[in-house]
Design a protein around this nucleic acid. Structure first.
Lengths: 136, 136
DNA sequence: AGAAACTATACTAAAATCGTAAACAAAAGA
DNA sequence: TCTTTTGTTTACGATTTTAGTATAGTTTCT
């Protein structure tokens, strides 16, 4: 019941980017500031770019910049960018073939986890990065 | 970001126990009804008994019975009984030695995850098993 | 052109999870 | 009391996931 280290790092990296004076920051600087190795930082940034949270600028003096307002970046969005869809339970996954019943809709327990999952997801999406801008 | 299969099964087993006519149900019957192997069911029941969610009755005609009112059994309680303390992030763990800072209290990110963790945990503890009694 | 910076894919090692096995202990009932 | 039924404990191996690295590009600025 944990997010992956990768998702944890992603939050840190977005945070560093948020606090930065410069809009465009090289991955090497982000790596240093967040305490994550460069290679792993790059991997994470690529995923964040894929979701549109950051934009990449190639070439000399390139780097990454926030592409969204921190007030719009939720922890849920960051975490899902890295770890994939938020699924509390394996049985919520699309490609999970429930051995209990043929049709998922009839699985008693599926409903339980489905509604719980929605609640937790809403909670994650409700927490925006700008919340943390001041009090740190 | 998933609960373990074991925790998933635990919820199913508690549910089956909840629906049962008989107060005391043998592990073998719970295994069958929940679709979990007997051995694994026993392992789970042991943990549930440890938290006091169920009580074990040894001997002939023995088995397990719910020890709490379903209205008091939350998903959070079941999940923590099986998977241990709910920690969204590894850095929240007591025995995690943060390499970023000496004192966790000064880690910028620790606060973020700490408050988020509390919210999700509250959500999990707010969902009680009796909620699912009727609509299934 | 050439250096600085990002992109893409694939790989390996470590850790956690899942489920099983075997031997043991306790209680109820005949 | 003794047999049956059930639970307890510890330990183990296979599988899956995660974490992090390596290699070989591509783009852009100077």
């Amino acid at each position: 019941m944990r997010i992956t280290h990768e998702a944890d790092y992603a939050v840190r990296i977005v945070y560093v980017l948020m606090q930065s004076e410069e809009p465009c920051v090289a991955a090497s600087k982000l790596a240093e500031a967040s305490g994550v190795t460069l290679r792993f930082t790059l991997k994470i940034l690529r995923k964040l770019a894929g979701t549109g949270i950051v934009t990449a600028q190639k070439g000399a003096n390139g780097g990454y910049a926030l592409a969204m307002d921190p007030a719009d970046i939720s922890l849920g969005l960051i975490i899902e960018s890295i770890d994939g869809p938020f699924e509390l339970n394996h049985c919520l996954s699309d490609d999970f073939d429930c051995t209990r019943v043929k049709d998922k809709k009839f699985c008693q327990f599926h409903h339980i986890f489905d509604s719980l999952n929605a609640k937790l997801k809403a909670e994650l999406y409700g927490i925006k990065m700008n919340t943390f801008k001041t009090h740190l």
